[in-house]
Computed example of a mutant assay.
Amino acid sequence: MQTMLSIIKSRPFNPLFRFISLLPTATTTPHSFSTSPSKTPLQNQFETWINHLKPGFTPSDVHRALQAQSDPDLSLDIFRWTAQQRNYTHTHLTYLTVIKQLIAGRRYRQAETLIHEVIAGACDPSVELYNAVIRFCCGRKFLFSLAFDVYKKMLRSEDSKPTLETYSLLFNSLLRRFNKLNVCYVYLHSVRSMTKQMKANGVIPDTFVLNMIIKAYSKCLELDEAIKVFRDMGLYGCEPNAYSYGYIAKGLCEKGRVNQGFKFFVEMRDKGFVPSASTYVIIVCSLAMNRRFEDAIEVLFDMLENSKSPDHLTYKTVLEGLCREGRADGAFDLLDECRKRDVNMNEKMYKALLRELHYICREGE
């Protein structure tokens, strides 16, 4: 026969009942707790804050009590205890406070539980609360769809419509999933829908949001739509920056529209914008593969002047292209010049490129 102790040990521990013995019974009041010295410091803190809450406390009182806590577990216990009291209901402010504390304390599972309560309508709507929930969900891989549930709730709301921050968070989260071309097309529909909804709600995008839309279209090689957004930036009081030009220049080159992509690159440089290393690489390789070696070399040197080093494949594309065009001497000279300019070209890379050049030259003999 099992002893009572073995039965108790076999039961799983539920952290929600840590302070069950502290909750007031029907014959006690919040101020009738004893201060037994055998209680833990956390239990004493819980009792102290409960005693601070006077009968008939309001959400503002609870908000102040929650803000004063440095322990997220204690905050959650206070939050749960107050929710059980008669004639009291939590507001968006108390939910927002405790959710932020749980996230800061890495209590993600508990935060997710409260988020589900918010979505279910446990408190009054609030833009700040909804955006905080979306920010958390966008940062968690398996809560991605939950962020859009909150967004849909905002669309249906009368007083808590999506804001620019909402769209920034959602667009940014979507773009992080644009890692493969076939996946891009799946999410591009969402980008289009949100862009239309953003305009319908009267939200004016900033440069950051417009750049993400441009990037989405460029990643999916929908360059005409990307260029249209680029041209319309001035209508929203925004100016294109290095990212705006870079996304389109890369997309055009990947699409095979190298001449147009190079024009965007030149315009970007004329305005003093410095492209990213990946933009430089795409431009150099595209020009070299189209046998525009002078332009490719010029961009290559510009890349080095801006302290951005080409990778092995970029060098190889230009050098081998020169060799196959019968310009082997020029290829060797270029390699030596790049070795002088590129501080990151180590001996191993130099020798590997040199061997490859000799091999290509022997093939052409």
Score class of each variant (00 low, 15 high):
L22R: 13
L22G: 12
A68C: 11
Y95N: 02
T40A: 14
D73W: 04
N51I: 10
W81C: 10
S38R: 14
A68N: 13
A104V: 07
T27I: 10
S60T: 09
T113N: 10
R86L: 10
L76A: 06
Q84M: 13
A26W: 09
I119W: 02
N51Y: 04
T29S: 13
I20P: 09
K100T: 09
Y88W: 03
H63D: 13
I115Y: 03
W49K: 15
L102D: 02
E112R: 12
S70F: 00
G56D: 00
H31T: 12
E47S: 15
I78M: 10
L102K: 06
L42E: 06
Y108D: 11
T58D: 09
P41I: 00
I115H: 03
L102H: 05
R107Q: 14
N44W: 05
H92S: 15
P30K: 00
I78C: 05
P59C: 03
I20Y: 12
H92D: 13
Q69K: 00
T82D: 05
L76S: 08
L42S: 11
Y95C: 05
Q69P: 11
K39T: 11
Y88A: 09
F57V: 00
P30N: 10
Q101W: 02
C123W: 00
W49A: 08
P24A: 03
A83G: 13
Y108C: 09
R64M: 09
F57S: 04
A122G: 12
K39S: 13
Y95T: 03
K39I: 08
T94S: 15
L114A: 03
L74D: 06
S32P: 10
T82L: 01
A65C: 11
A111P: 08
Y95P: 08
L114S: 00
P30D: 03
P59G: 04
L96I: 04
E117N: 13
L93S: 15
I99W: 04
A68V: 06
P125F: 00
T97W: 01
I119S: 09
Q45V: 06
T58Y: 02
F79D: 12
T97R: 11
H116T: 09
R80I: 02
L76E: 07
T58K: 13
K39R: 14
L93V: 13
N44I: 05
H52G: 06
P24E: 07
T25S: 15
W49E: 14
P30R: 04
Y108K: 11
L96C: 10
Y108H: 13
Y95W: 00
T113R: 12
L23K: 15
Y88K: 08
T94E: 09
S38P: 08
I50S: 08
H92V: 06
P55K: 07
D77L: 01
Q43K: 07
L102T: 01
H52P: 02
R64S: 15
A122L: 05
R107H: 05
N44F: 05
A104W: 01
A26V: 11
A65E: 00
F33H: 15
I20H: 14
L96W: 06
I119R: 01
T82K: 05
Q101F: 04
H52R: 14
L76W: 02
I99K: 05
L93K: 14
L96A: 14
K100S: 11
D73C: 11
E112T: 14
H116W: 01
R109C: 11
G121Y: 03
H31N: 12
Q69L: 03
P72C: 02
I20Q: 12
K100C: 07
F79I: 05
D73K: 07
H31E: 11
N44P: 11
T113K: 12
H90P: 07
